[in-house]
Design a protein around this nucleic acid. Structure first.
Lengths: 162, 162
DNA sequence: CATTTGCGGATATATATTGTCCTTAATAAA
DNA sequence: TTTATTAAGGACAATATATATCCGCAAATG
């Protein structure tokens, strides 16, 4: 069970969008070149973000993507679920129902015990993701990345934004 | 990102093994028929449990599997990792290194910020799984499953254990 | 000896992921 | 108005992973 690489791409792209001057758009091309990613395929990840209303888009030259909300109002779970979908990481196929010792018409009051526990773990994962916003990520990044590299990066992408 | 169905199978099989009289073995065949699963493929999941030393095996008629430790000393994470592997659910391909604004020989002191956060969530997931033992599961199951069905089930599998 | 069993390898099929190519419509700049 | 650029999305292909089956081997049982 490994997350799609598009999740990683979407997170890094959102981090850049979060650091952009207000109102500016960034194209798929610029984001792909910055990260060394296949433009056409990255586009699918960005479309997922768009469908989830995490980003806004505009067409034409100097068009592209920008965040639809403030970085503090977008969290990791939003982005992960936009790309991976919202379904749980454990699916219960209810194999207990195959037990030949159970009456055929037996109806369970609760969901399967195994599933309940697996879903608790899934929830713990999601809660952690939900607790970190893009604003938090930008804070961490600007601590980690040397200031000059950080600054050059935004000049570089903005130059490509027309 | 969805867990393999073998994880579900392994958990249910372990639940049965945990409720078995001490010393008794249960064959792949019995476990497969009880749960309505393909015997040959379930066998792969049980082999994973064996390789992880969660179960002990013996050959020949009346052979099969039994837990290698007491149910209170085996937790969900043990079983999940035996089947899914121990690698994290998020892999960092270090795409920040592709940033053209970074000096070619730049060496990061810390792992990628995005990865650190994703790994925290992964750890929260694992910690939850680690906190629930097979003994806990058996307790939950015997609350959920009507006592007579629970009892019949073990008579049924033991009858198939020779 | 004959039967049952776990184990591992080889192989086949289905599904998911990754990636590319193309058309369309909208937008902005020249 | 014209041209270039863009996101959106459909079609398609390549690759990887998950699911499943089959076989032979060695060990254990009676």
């Amino acid at each position: 069970m490994i997350l799609k690489s598009q999740v990683e791409w979407a997170l890094h792209c959102c981090a850049i969008l979060a650091g952009l001057p207000p109102g500016r758009y960034l194209s798929t091309k610029a984001l792909a070149e910055l990260h060394g990613l296949p433009k056409e395929y990255l586009s699918k990840a960005l479309q997922s973000l768009s469908q989830a209303s995490l980003v806004e888009t505009t067409l034409g030259p100097s068009g592209g993507y920008r965040l639809a909300r403030s970085p503090s109002e977008i969290n990791f779970l939003d982005i992960v679920e936009a790309v991976e979908g919202k379904s749980r990481t454990f699916t219960c196929s209810n194999i207990r129902a195959n037990n030949p010792c159970r009456p055929k018409d037996f109806c369970d009051s609760k969901p399967c015990s195994v599933a309940r526990i697996m879903w608790q773990a899934d929830e713990a994962w999601r809660n952690t993701l939900k607790s970190v916003s893009l604003a938090d990520l930008v804070d961490t990044l600007s601590e980690d990345v040397p200031a000059d590299i950080w600054k050059n990066t935004f000049e570089w992408v903005l130059q490509r934004a027309g």
